[in-house]
Nucleic acid binder design. Structure first.
Lengths: 235, 235
DNA sequence: TAGATTGTTAATCGATTAACAATC
DNA sequence: TAGATTGTTAATCGATTAACAATC
């Protein structure tokens, strides 16, 4: 009840279909991939603090996992530590970035500029972590043409052009649930290979597209399950 | 790469410490608990469509899981279906609500009313799914005293009173990462038993408090991992 | 009865944990 | 060398899948 958790997935295992294949990056378990961003975050913080070397113990504590878990996770990437010494913060950070594919900036399009989409479009953390929001789309005529986070909101009919024109590979869906599947299909048709949806509804995507879903109301309902056990109400 | 996933957790198993214990609700695996909100969502949709009876096949398809998975999950709650017939939509919906502890309305306080907090404070889906936002707190003097989603924003010094005064059991953290742990500690001291954080930082909570973390930038980084394999860039 | 569909069992699979040999 | 810490192995644990007997 007290540990931080990453994100689960019924994900296909992360095998390496790539041509030559970078050493070490092959066949990383999905559970490990989901924790890598957390490690990277801690490493970046250490770098900002001027820390040059770290240990599995320190890194794990910062990320909220055990040192055994951390070493096991890193072992799937390769051997980037030195026994008896620890890990070079900058080098490990770079290796994880390479494995996650963050050495190239990914371009993101957000569909649905309501309260949530608006917040995401203005979210500075995206830029800090290597993503560029390159397009905004909304169906509300009152919203189309306005500027949010420095970008002009485009109409739904422009979705394909916005995605392909900016060469976006990731789409974020922040629309009402009712239209989420249609938007999803259009994003896929336009060429995105990854989708992050906030719409409370199951979406279908082809096998070559990666889908991740965040449902904040479901998160609260999961909290309610444990809440009930502590406050005694609810049954 | 194509399935919907719930939320992973390094969660303690959901054992039943409650006194008498409702039949069936004991010892539900965390992976199952995380999928229950999805089933509930589909059941509510079926109810709205006037559907009276459903099958594991139909329900699973709507939730994006296999029928085997669904039946296995429901088996932890009890036997609420009829062989050869299926499930009564209303009855099953009610049983899941009881297990999740949704028969009592939970009160939620949101700390950090920036872009994201603002969006969450105005998020109608919370009310639809049985949660009441009863307090808003922010450190920005320019924001304190303003009204968002019908509630007046309170200063940080009022956090404890806002939580205990409204008897809130769940806290949502939408503050900058730098202050997230302090806010978390204050929420716990004020008596919440569940915390949902959007701050990109690992948080520590005592064993009796349940913590769930949503990190949208990490979600994008996980998508980038697969993106790299398809677009070939990034290594 | 015959057909349908659940609930459960058993097998498989993947993830976590702990311990320690390797080695800096 | 002695102490420290990694990387790996093996054991455990939990979750998923498939098949089917129970039963409506």
């Amino acid at each position: 009840m007290d540990t931080q958790r990453g994100v689960p997935r019924t994900h296909a295992r992360a095998t390496e279909p790539g041509a030559t294949g970078r050493a070490g990056a092959r066949d990383v378990p999905t559970a490990t991939v989901a924790r890598l961003p957390g490690y990277l975050r801690v490493l970046n913080g250490l770098t900002a603090d001027g820390v040059v070397t770290t240990s599995s113990e320190e890194l794990a504590a910062g990320a909220g996992v055990t040192s055994a878990q951390l070493r096991k996770d890193l072992s799937f990437l390769g051997s980037y530590g030195r026994r008896g010494v620890g890990y070079d913060v900058l080098h490990l950070s770079e290796q994880i970035s390479v494995v996650l594919g963050l050495t190239t900036q990914r371009r993101v399009v957000i569909v649905g500029i309501g309260n949530l989409g608006h917040a995401l479009a203005s979210y500075s953390v995206f830029a800090e972590r290597g993503f560029a929001v390159v397009g905004l789309v909304d169906a509300d005529p009152a919203l189309v043409g306005t500027t949010v986070g420095g970008l002009m909101v485009q109409p739904p009919a422009s979705l394909h052009d916005v995605v392909s024109g900016a060469d976006a590979t990731i789409g974020i869906i922040a629309t009402p649930a009712a239209v989420a599947q249609d938007v999803c299909d259009e994003l896929v048709a336009a060429g995105v290979v990854g989708i992050l949806t906030f719409a409370p509804r199951a979406l279908r995507v082809p096998a070559h597209v990666d889908l991740r879903a965040v449902d904040v109301a479901s998160e609260l309902q999961i909290l309610a399950f444990h809440d009930r056990r502590r406050t005694g109400t609810g049954a």
